[in-house]
């Protein structure tokens, strides 16, 4: 009998195993929903599939009676805009900080301890400060994500820069590289894949901060909608929205993974 660690499922079985937990979750939901609705047809906790389909249809394909907008798309657009802009800003600052901290000892001495300290500030604790200083508009929400995510990305990128073998940096100098060329042609290109990894790992945090900011002060957005309908125990809205957010986050992660593989093929074979 081979060891468990040496047993690999064939392709088909692997696909089935991957789907299995999802199937179990869906089955458990249907069972729970049926049982509860049988006992009390007005139960709101686990809405039936029919109710879910109706609600999704109303939110995704019909105009809202009050505002005349299709709510799901308005919310999705608002949230995606915020999170993509915020992640873009975070990635740019994180890369710049990480590169200079990793490459230039004077910048490291100056900025590394500060970034390390700032990364320990719980971003949600300063959310009120952001709302007070920046107002209730888009800027405060984007700022929350940027403040929460950037220091982690910067530290991760700087760590990667520090991991580059000294031999490489010395070799580049013997080939005539200045600090500038060393940074732009040797260090920076090797940081891109790690930047993508760092952003991927921060996606969850970014969504958390986004939903928190939207829950408190917003007029549209996926997080805003969830917290709005919570007042009416509208699980038929909340559950599809949560599913939708999860799907969006998953797609972003997947696209970043594909981009990494396409743009930096050399980084794949290195792992």
């Amino acid at each position: 009998m081979p060891r468990l660690i040496n047993l690999h499922p064939p392709r088909g079985s692997a696909a089935f195993l991957a789907v299995l937990p999802f199937l179990v979750l869906i089955a458990a939901y249907l069972f729970g929903s049926n049982t509860r609705l049988e006992a009390n047809p007005d139960d709101k906790l686990l809405p039936s599939v029919a109710t879910l389909v109706d609600t999704v249809h109303a939110y995704a394909f019909e105009e809202d009676r009050r505002s005349g907008e299709v709510l799901l798309w308005v919310d999705t657009w608002a949230s995606l805009k915020r999170i993509v802009v915020a992640l873009g800003i975070s990635a740019a600052i994180g890369l710049g900080l990480g590169l200079t901290i990793g490459a230039i000892p004077y910048i490291r001495a100056l900025a590394a301890p500060f970034v390390a300290a700032v990364s320990m500030i719980p971003p949600l604790a300063i959310l009120p400060v952001l709302f007070i200083v920046l107002g209730l508009g888009e800027v405060a929400k984007i700022a929350l994500i940027v403040i929460g995510v950037t220091p982690v990305i910067a530290r991760d990128v700087a760590l990667r820069a520090g991991e580059l073998p000294t031999e490489q940096l010395i070799k580049a100098q013997t080939l005539g590289a200045s600090s500038w060329l060393l940074s732009t042609r040797i260090i920076l290109p090797q940081l891109w894949p790690r930047l993508i990894d760092a952003v991927r790992l921060q996606l969850g945090c970014a969504w958390l901060f986004l939903i928190a900011a939207e829950a408190i002060a917003s007029t549209e957005g996926l997080g805003y909608r969830i917290f709005l309908v919570r007042r009416y125990l509208a699980m038929d809205v909340i559950l599809p929205y949560v599913f939708w957010i999860t799907l969006l986050a998953f797609l972003m992660d997947w696209m970043l993974r594909i981009a990494r593989r396409r743009l930096f093929p050399w980084a794949e074979s290195q792992r």
Binding site: Q168, T174, P189, Q190
Partner: peptide
Amino acid sequence: PEPGPDRGIVFQRYSLFPHL
């Protein structure tokens, strides 16, 4: 006082740039 193009080096490992 620092490495330059007048003196080349080959180490046992890690002398190449993996992204090129």
